[in-house]
């Protein structure tokens, strides 16, 4: 997958990239893993499923899957429904 070529604003201390999480533009550290993304969103330990660019990534692979700029992640959970 191609990394974003967009220039990064100089005021960021860490190198960041833009991804889309549940439809929202989100700035994250470049090259973070899915497990790190879940941690940074304070969702660690919750029962979740993740779809990355349309494909489900099994929980066991979250620590090894690195994100690229422009990636689209959907993070879902179970809620009340009939």
């Amino acid at each position: 997958m191609k990394r974003s070529d967009a220039p990064l604003p100089v005021y960021f201390l860490a190198i960041v990239m833009q991804i889309v999480v549940n439809g929202e533009n989100t700035a994250v550290s470049e090259g973070i893993t899915l497990a790190e993304l879940v941690g940074s969103l304070q969702l660690a330990g919750q029962r979740l499923a993740i779809e990355l660019n349309g494909d489900i990534v099994p929980r066991s692979r979250w620590p090894e899957v690195h994100l690229n700029g422009g990636d689209r992640a959907e993070i879902v959970r179970a809620i009340g429904g009939g």
Binding site: N22, T26, Q42, V76, A78
Partner: peptide, 17 residues
Amino acid sequence: VAVRRTNLGQKPGEPNL
């Protein structure tokens, strides 16, 4: 149960269904 997007602003430790 229904399957829906997780709230990103969720407080840690908020109870889950």
